[in-house]
Amino acid sequence: MATLRIDRTAADPDAVICAIEQAEGYIASICFKTGPPETVGVELEYTVHASANPATYVDHDRLCQALGDHAPPTLRAGSAHLPLRRGSAVTLEPGGQVELSTLPQRSLTDLHEAVGADLAELTGRLAHVGLELGGTGIDPHRPPRRMLSTPRYDAMAAAFARRNDAGRTMMCSTAGLQVCLDAGPPSRWAAVHDLGPPLIALFANSRRHAGHDTGWASARMRTWLAMDPSRTRQVPPGPDPASRWARYALDAQLLCIRRPDGPWTVPAGVTFADWVAGAVDGPPTYADLDYHLSTLFPPVRPRGYLEVRYLDTVAGPDWFAPAAILTALLADEPTIDRVRELCEPVAGQWALAARLGMTDPALARAATEVRDLALSRLDLPAALLRDVIEGSTRNGS
Rank of each mutant, 00 (worst) to 15 (best):
H60T: 02
D69Y: 00
L103R: 15
T74F: 00
G124M: 08
A117M: 11
G78Q: 15
Q105W: 00
H70K: 03
A50M: 07
L108C: 09
S79I: 08
Y46M: 07
L82M: 13
A66Y: 12
L122H: 03
G137H: 03
L82S: 10
R142N: 05
H81T: 05
G68F: 04
G130D: 04
T109N: 09
S101E: 06
L111T: 09
S88F: 01
G137C: 06
L84Y: 06
T109Y: 04
T123K: 05
D61G: 07
D69N: 13
P140S: 11
P143N: 03
L82I: 10
R125P: 03
A89W: 11
L111E: 09
D69H: 12
A77P: 00
L111Y: 08
D59K: 05
H70C: 14
L67Y: 00
A55R: 14
P83H: 09
G68C: 03
A50N: 15
T91L: 08
V129C: 06
R85N: 08
L75F: 01
R86P: 00
P72C: 05
T123G: 08
V115F: 09
Y46V: 02
L131Q: 07
P73Q: 10
P104F: 02
Q97S: 11
H49D: 06
A77F: 07
L82G: 00
T102Q: 10
E132M: 13
S107F: 02
D59R: 10
P73L: 06
A52K: 06
G116P: 12
E121V: 01
P143A: 13
H112V: 09
A71I: 02
R145M: 09
H49E: 10
Y57M: 00
V129R: 07
E132G: 10
L103Q: 15
D59A: 10
Q65I: 12
L108P: 08
S79R: 06
V115S: 09
L131F: 10
C64I: 00
H128Q: 14
L111P: 09
A66M: 13
E132F: 05
V115I: 12
S88D: 06
H49I: 06
R145D: 01
V129K: 06
G96P: 05
I138N: 10
G137I: 04
P73R: 12
D139E: 08
Y57T: 01
V48T: 11
A127K: 11
L111M: 12
P104E: 02
L122W: 01
R62T: 12
H70S: 13
V58M: 05
S88N: 05
G137D: 02
